[in-house]
Design a protein around this nucleic acid. Structure first.
Length: 222
DNA sequence: GTGAAGATCGCC
DNA sequence: GCGATCTTCACG
């Protein structure tokens, strides 16, 4: 008998309650879960190995830093939905909206370890990088605001999986402000993580940076 | 209406 | 290290 494969069929979809929690808590637990994207003709599955949290109106790197705008409307909405935006004139970015409605917070999916659906691509790391994975999984703005309990885009886990993962935290990549907050979580040593931590980062900690704003709550506005 | 920046990526 | 490429938003 062929060895058992990790197919979407073997995954249980994460419930809404998974997303309805503080962002760093969800970030930590998203690592290791599987993202599934399905359209009319294809299905892709990848294991999440790298994410970044963008939290609240006092996080200078978060799009909600300037408050509610047409673009950030989804971030202010209920958890468990996709926030997809366009940047640099050519790339889409996929985020997961988390925490309570009215508390803008999103988690950027930065890298996946391919599980299935990427076989025809030549790129050995077709989902390492937030822009790249959206391009290769045909994720664009038409998915902005869709529920992550839908069948075209969802996140699941294998039942009974309780493996211990070595997750480390670093500052977020590609931002100019808010670099003091260690809100990037990644699977240590995994070759599909998009890139090494920034030089000059604090030594990779095993916990998110408590001094940067509190582990599980929003920082008070000043 | 206009200008500047941007949660990137691949090539020089 | 740099340019591509165009949406979004702040500002006037």
């Amino acid at each position: 008998m062929a060895k058992r494969q990790l197919t979407p069929r073997a995954l249980l979809r994460l419930p809404l309650t998974f997303y309805d929690r503080p962002a760093l808590e969800v970030s930590r637990e998203l690592v290791g879960k599987c993202l599934v994207r399905r359209n009319e003709s294809h299905e892709w599955t990848g294991r999440i190995v790298e994410v970044e949290a963008y939290i609240g109106e006092d996080d200078p790197a978060c799009h909600a830093y300037h408050g509610l705008t047409p673009r950030t409307r989804v971030m202010y909405g209920p958890p468990g939905h996709a926030y997809v935006y366009f940047t640099y004139g050519m790339y889409f970015m996929l985020n997961v909206v988390v925490h309570a409605e009215g508390s803008p917070a999103a988690i950027l999916i930065r890298a996946l370890e391919p599980v299935s659906g990427f076989e025809e691509l030549e790129d050995p790391r077709p989902a390492s990088g937030p822009g790249k994975l959206c391009k290769n999984m045909q994720i664009d703005k038409s998915l902005n605001g869709v529920s992550l309990l839908s069948r075209q885009l969802w996140i699941g886990q294998r039942p009974g999986m309780k493996e211990k993962l070595e997750i480390r935290w670093s500052s977020r990549i590609g931002i100019r402000e808010g670099t003091n907050r260690l809100w990037r979580a990644y699977l240590f040593g995994n070759p599909f993580v998009s890139r090494k931590s920034n030089p000059g980062d604090p030594t990779s900690p095993s916990e998110p940076d408590p001094a940067s704003g509190g582990l599980y709550q929003f920082r008070a506005k000043k």
